[in-house]
């Protein structure tokens, strides 16, 4: 059993990247924009899991999420404590710009900062972004992966220091 588990684990290790690694499919904004729907305003729940480098236990949080077209996003965390992060104000301008750019399909702005990768179709897609060497994000972020259909379902942010944040959005 132990061996079986090991084989399964090995399978996953090998197969997961093959199945999920969008980073094998470099793309450009022009083709991507045709295959990803424009994202409209939405209210939903979110769940977050942060895996920090050198820390064994992940940090988990959840709460309400809201996206307002052309304006930005709000995270209202309810667990493990209540707090609100408003990305629409100018303190988070850069982050907000990225979110707005993706939702409005204005990829050219992002293309200057990121390499694009795409896999899937308009109904189920994965978008990968890796910062270019000259971009500001290069020092902190190694990749951002977005999974979605009509809306974005999941975002994975991998940092250069080994931290990884996964965000799920559910109705």
């Amino acid at each position: 059993m132990k061996k079986f588990s090991f084989i399964i684990l090995l399978f996953f290790i090998i197969s997961c990247p093959v199945l999920a690694d969008v980073y094998k499919f470099p793309s450009n904004f022009e083709s991507i924009s045709k295959q990803i729907p424009k994202i409209h305003s939405i209210k939903c729940k979110f769940k977050q899991e942060k895996h920090l480098q050198n820390i064994s236990k992940p940090l988990i949080s959840s709460g309400d999420f809201e996206f307002v077209e052309n304006k930005g996003v709000y995270f209202h965390t309810l667990y493990p404590f209540e707090s609100t992060v408003d990305y629409t104000n100018k303190n988070y301008k850069q982050i907000n710009d990225i979110i707005n750019a993706i939702s409005a399909k204005k990829y050219s702005r992002l293309e200057r900062e990121f390499y694009f990768f795409y896999e899937g179709n308009i109904n189920k897609w994965t978008l990968g972004m890796k910062p270019k060497k000259n971009s500001n994000a290069y020092n902190y972020i190694s990749s951002i992966t977005l999974n979605g259909a009509d809306y974005i379902n999941k975002i994975i942010i991998k940092q250069t220091n080994g931290n990884m944040t996964t965000l799920w959005f559910t109705k």
Binding site: F46, Q48, K50, L52, Q53, N54, I55, L59, S61, F75, T77, P80, F81, S83, V85, Y87, I95, Y140, I141, I155, I157, Q159, N161, G162, N163, T165, L167
Partner: peptide, 17 residues
């Protein structure tokens, strides 16, 4: 610091240890 740590999309520059 805890609030920052849980901040969704919050990026830490260094590791927690």
């Amino acid at each position: 610091s805890i609030e920052k740590l849980y901040n969704p999309t919050g990026i830490q520059l260094t590791t927690l240890d």
